[in-house]
Simulated scan of single mutants.
Amino acid sequence: MKSTRDRVRQAISFEVIGLLLSVPLAAVTFGFDMGRTGVLGVVGATIATIWNYLFNLGFDHGLKHFTGSTQKSLRVRFLHAVSFELGLMLIFLPIIAWWMGIGLLEALIVDIAFVVFYLVYAFVFTWCYDTIFPDTDAKKSNAT
Rank of each mutant, 00 (worst) to 15 (best):
D6N: 08
R9T: 04
I12T: 14
E15D: 13
V16E: 06
I17K: 07
L20I: 15
L21A: 13
S22F: 10
P24C: 07
L25Q: 04
A27R: 00
M34G: 00
G35Q: 06
G38L: 03
L40D: 01
V43K: 02
L54K: 11
L54C: 04
F55K: 11
F55V: 09
N56H: 14
L57P: 00
H61C: 08
H61D: 10
L63V: 06
L63F: 03
K64C: 00
H65M: 09
T67Q: 03
T67P: 05
K72N: 06
L74D: 07
V76S: 09
V76R: 15
R77M: 13
A81H: 05
V82K: 10
S83D: 05
E85V: 06
G87S: 06
L90C: 13
W98S: 07
W98E: 10
W99A: 05
G103T: 14
L105H: 02
L105D: 14
E106Q: 13
I109W: 02
D111F: 03
A113V: 01
V116T: 12
L119M: 12
V120T: 14
Y121F: 15
F125K: 04
C128A: 13
D130K: 04
F133Q: 10
P134E: 09
P134Q: 07
D135K: 04
D135E: 11
T136Y: 08
D137F: 11
K140G: 02
S141M: 07
T144R: 14
T144K: 12
